[in-house]
Design a protein around this nucleic acid. Sequence first.
DNA 1: CTCTCTTTGACCATTTTTGACTATTATATA
DNA 2: TATATAATAGTCAAAAATGGTCAAAGAGAG
Lengths: 154, 154
Amino acid sequence: MAALSDNIERFIKQLMDEDTKIELRRNELAQHFGCAPSQINYVLATRFSVDRGYIVESRRGGSGYVKVIRITQSDSDLLSVLISRVGDEIDKDSANAIIHRLYELSLITLNEARILASAVRCDNVALSGRACDMLRAQILKNALVQVFKNLRED
Amino acid sequence: MAALSDNIERFIKQLMDEDTKIELRRNELAQHFGCAPSQINYVLATRFSVDRGYIVESRRGGSGYVKVIRITQSDSDLLSVLISRVGDEIDKDSANAIIHRLYELSLITLNEARILASAVRCDNVALSGRACDMLRAQILKNALVQVFKNLRED
DNA sequence: CTCTCTTTGACCATTTTTGACTATTATATA
DNA sequence: TATATAATAGTCAAAAATGGTCAAAGAGAG
């Protein structure tokens, strides 16, 4: 069995037992487990992905950190549904429909919906239809993650 | 956990809580935080930039000082200033500084700031630096218009 | 034996912190 | 008044403190 990764995963989940958000020091953690620091990244990438209901944020440099945030199960389900719905490219109408839905579910406010819609408009941008759809998909997916992250933090 | 710079930033902002203008002694402040005086310059440069809505003035020599001034502007002025600041292309850090400023001015909420920042990230997008900066500028300007439109409606 | 998942390590990127050297200005002194 | 001195602040590059990436080696499961 792949003990190390599982142990690290368990350790992090224990830390999160009561809180939905914790802060780690990558190097400390690696030292604690006597492994390479990049091992921590591996665990975060494989066990704490968005699909599994987690969001990871970090900052480098002096007093840098790694934050792990848990989103609720139902939120995470919806999030992954929406993300796969968006896919690699999405046209403007479908994007707007998704934004509208988020608004109706009260997951975002009217202002947020408008900002999102404007971000996803992609007109005035010198990109051909296909490239535009791909770009829109990327922006929308980034924003979706953000929306759900916000939900957990409030 | 919080970095020295973060603490100094917070300290200065507390001093400015009610006033739009304060005066500091660089060396005193450095001593208070037990750090190199140039650390203060670092904080001023990274956290109190014009993009973030501050102006810093100083004078050397006997009874020298450092003044920090928060820029205040009417909304409509601000919109045009920001739009021309964004221009036809803008890098990520400057864009984030502007978003941060909108948040500090309470013109957008934290959630909105995050959505905007994510929309403007442009990573994962197969675009070269220059094209990316142009795209970012376009998205940001669209969103700015939206933000200020929303303001008028509330 | 092969395939996949894990683990490591060398190299990269970012942010903060410090220090040596420089520039400016008020004030005391000749 | 001219000059020296002390008191400030600024600059810039190096060092320190983090975290990230990616490809290759290792280990287990079938």
